[in-house]
Design a protein around this nucleic acid. Structure first.
Lengths: 208, 208
DNA sequence: GTCGAGGGTGAGCGAGCGCTTAGAGTGCCC
DNA sequence: GGGCACTCTAAGCGCTCGCTCACCCTCGAC
């Protein structure tokens, strides 16, 4: 996601890489609808309606309803992976890097929970080919987290009996934020990120 | 869930409380189908077919497709809650009780991951009334876990700065097992339960 | 002013959906 | 043996779905 994306900083202006304007409006509408009702319960008429267009207009920009989901899934996964990698590749101790990775990954899943919900829970509405592509991106998430944990174990900063299992648990914990997080609730994405970073450091037995 | 349920011990014989036989077969078929494809992508013809019956037979035992989901949801939630409460109300230190609660709750979500998936991810296919009923059961899950953590904090066995947030995280971690657990994978439900019990004790800073 | 290209619409197609209905088979009570 | 309740089926109704098609705007090039 290093491509041009927003003119002025911040997350509230995503999908900048989708052109033309009508295609982006349709995609944003689809994200909302899929997150609210699920892929299968969403109609193409609903998506077009939210974008202020007729049902037929959707098919000028996308071949099928599934192509919309595929596009959302790929872009969403790439963004999440980018967030994770930036933290994983930063300077600092394994504990710093793990805390930052969890903090930013959770912040993304909370702040962009509509996108995240679609990305995480509608995976098997995709065709086998498209799913395979997404699964590859997902494995890179896992590799990034496992890398940090292995580093910490190697330096003696972490105490982790089961690296693979703990990696799965950490990622699972972060991802599930998208399911329960409520934008109107008492916690901000930042606060959840901070709490989770602390919890994960405990999970890996990080030395103070 | 203290009603008669299995004649000989064990989990592989659930749904014993559903009668008559044809109604149970339909319900089991619905669980499989919903878990595989999701509620909205499952057709009543598919459910009836899996149960070896004609499409119309479904409507002799259930008023609507949604009633099937509602029944599955309620029974599933009640079972999970039962599992959790048994551990929460047992004898022993807060650490013992928390470990046992997580172990058995995770074991259930892994072993019964088809049911758990339906129960956890198809909630908002239900009508508002039915959803409200299920949400009540869910809050009792949270209360049970929070109770143990509060006990541990009170006795000084746990070190938890944010009890409510940590409760959410622990439950979220356990529930998400249903999403990623794969029966053909390398880990058994017991092994995942043991790993997660250890991780959760670390999260609450349990004294050794 | 004409024209072509591309973004848009209204109407509607074939298909599959949830669900209903009329009626057939089966077992039980008297 | 007749009547009844229960279970199940074949056929199909009405509807909405994803998607298509014939046509219409708008706008820049010349």
């Amino acid at each position: 996601m290093s491509t041009a994306e927003e003119t002025a900083g911040g997350e509230p202006q995503p999908w900048g890489e989708v052109n033309p304007d009508a295609a982006r409006r349709l995609l944003v509408a689809a994200v909302e609808a899929f997150a609210e009702r699920g892929y299968h319960a969403t109609t193409t008429r609903d998506i077009a309606g939210r974008a202020g267009m007729s049902p037929a207009a959707l098919y000028i920009h996308y071949k099928t309803k599934e192509e919309l989901l595929h596009r959302i899934s790929r872009i969403g996964h790439e963004k999440a992976l980018d967030v994770l990698r930036t933290a994983a590749d930063s300077e600092g101790s394994p504990a710093d890097r793990l805390a930052e990775a969890v903090r930013s990954f959770v912040r993304w899943h909370a702040g962009q929970h509509t996108v995240a919900r679609v990305v995480q829970y509608e995976l098997d509405a995709l065709s086998p080919d498209a799913r395979a592509e997404i699964v590859t991106l997902r494995r890179q998430n896992e590799a990034a987290v496992r890398g940090i944990i292995e580093d910490g174990v190697a330096t003696g900063d972490f105490d982790v009996p089961d690296v693979k299992g703990t990696t799965i648990a950490v990622l699972s914990l972060c991802i599930d934020v998208a399911r329960w997080f409520n934008a109107g609730g008492p916690r901000t994405p930042d606060q959840v990120g901070a709490l989770y970073a602390d919890l994960v450091l405990r999970m890996v037995g990080a030395k103070k």
